[in-house]
Design a protein around this nucleic acid. Structure first.
Lengths: 250, 250
DNA sequence: CATCTTTGCGTACTTTTGACATAAAGGTAC
DNA sequence: GTACCTTTATGTCAAAAGTACGCAAAGATG
């Protein structure tokens, strides 16, 4: 028995007509807050089950723009740094019966349970700028610390894992600065690198390396309110061309 | 007027029923011969137009296995080193009218001209082991030197370019040795690195670095027939676990 | 004002990288 | 055979990059 009024059914109708079948996008949205990497997760209506934000690609929409649209809707951000990182194309990516049961979808009758190939994108965003916004299948959208992530729906734990590996592998040429606010201190930047890399760095050597890159400008102000010596604030130099070049620590 | 007997039409019928729409795989098969990187290209029946090998994904087939199947069919190789490198998802990837004209396909009536998203894979194969085999839309399959590649159909010149960039970026953790025969000399390995990286290396320093990795074993034999000092033959050590670990030059 | 922690910069040691010397091996020219 | 040439195989050494660690200045606390 199909509940034709269930929002999921209407969504499915839309997707069927306007979107590309068998293919979806999953987004791992990375933020940085209180010295921890966070990802934005969604809780499905009437359940305690969480998943990554995701969506489908319109038949006349580029894949990059689809990812941008999907992640914009969950974050409220207009400009986004996005990186395609992997295609998850196994025929059996997760236990689908178990999954449909968990999310209470009255959609057994429709073929939503067919295999889906998912293109993984990760985003590097400024935590404080994000307005977490659920979609119409979910009722809560919030940040989770990477270490505290629960068992997610689908194969989303695996996708987060691969996204993180990919981010780690490419830290040296990713614009890591997108995870920080406009101005920040060197120790704050160091915490970010430490968190991504998963090990601590020597503050003195970190200074030297970061300063050697000459893409930071020191502001006159210092960070107030710290219990110890007030650190200077810095900002990434923007290249005159307007292209983001926030290089990074190798 | 549609020629229902044209092999392309029958192929399309098959693809429509059994494969995932809007989604395809393109393969950049790299080989190494006479100190040059080569890619395997196909010439379309009755034309002088060349393209990369490609194909579609069966509805119940993993994407990796689809890529493997497609590349196996063109090379005759059973074991393959494959690497997914990019999804080409623009809505307009090439001039489709021009392309259909070039390949003389009597398929105006069917919607083959709809946008296709393509997953790019590259393969590293041993040149001499490959038996180039055309498919039923093409009549010639052969190696082309990277520098001599003609204007290809679709956006395949771009795909080759991106594959090469990706290979270059990841040389340091790709099993480059798959491009060489079982046994080879150090100078031959050096030529391979030089060709991929696009610049020459100092033979003395190359030796040191390669030997420091300790994953080569020197055989008793030497390469005969050279006009100069006969170099030793080497072979990559296979790890006891059976997993390929052909590390590489950084 | 003494104490504590953190920032900011400097020095010394180690490892890696890059430039270059040279002897041994194996062919060719005579 | 012998002189000569090219290429392989190893070695040396200095520059550069990376790592460990010393220490004074800044700012809050008691």
């Amino acid at each position: 028995m199909i509940d034709y009024n269930h929002p999921a059914f209407q969504y499915y109708q839309n997707v069927s007509e306007q979107c590309i079948h068998y293919l979806s996008i999953d987004g791992v949205i990375f933020g940085f807050h209180q010295n921890q990497l966070k990802v934005l997760l969604l809780r499905w209506k009437g359940t305690d089950e969480w998943s990554l934000p995701g969506g489908f690609i319109l038949k006349a929409e580029s894949v990059d723009l689809a990812a941008q649209r999907i992640i914009r809707e969950r974050t409220g951000l207009q400009t986004l740094y996005l990186q395609q990182f992997h295609v998850f194309g196994e025929t059996i990516r997760y236990n689908s019966e178990e999954t449909w049961r968990k999310i209470n979808l009255p959609v057994q009758g429709i073929n939503w349970s067919e295999r889906t190939i998912s293109i993984g994108y990760y985003a590097l965003v400024e935590y404080a700028e994000v307005v977490p916004t659920p979609d119409f299948l979910t009722e809560e959208c919030r940040w989770w610390s990477l270490e505290a992530i629960p068992n997610l729906l689908f194969d989303h734990n695996h996708i987060v894992e691969v996204a993180l590996q990919s981010l780690r592998k490419n830290v040296s040429d990713q614009p890591i600065g997108h995870l920080l606010p406009e101005t920040f201190t060197i120790p704050e930047l160091q915490r970010l690198y430490e968190t991504i890399l998963g090990h601590s760095l020597d503050a003195r050597n970190f200074y030297k390396k970061i300063m050697a890159q000459e893409n930071l400008e020191r502001l006159a102000e210092r960070r107030a309110g710290t219990p110890h010596k007030a650190p200077y604030l810095y900002r990434f130099k923007r290249s005159p061309s307007g292209i983001n070049d926030i290089p990074s620590y190798t």
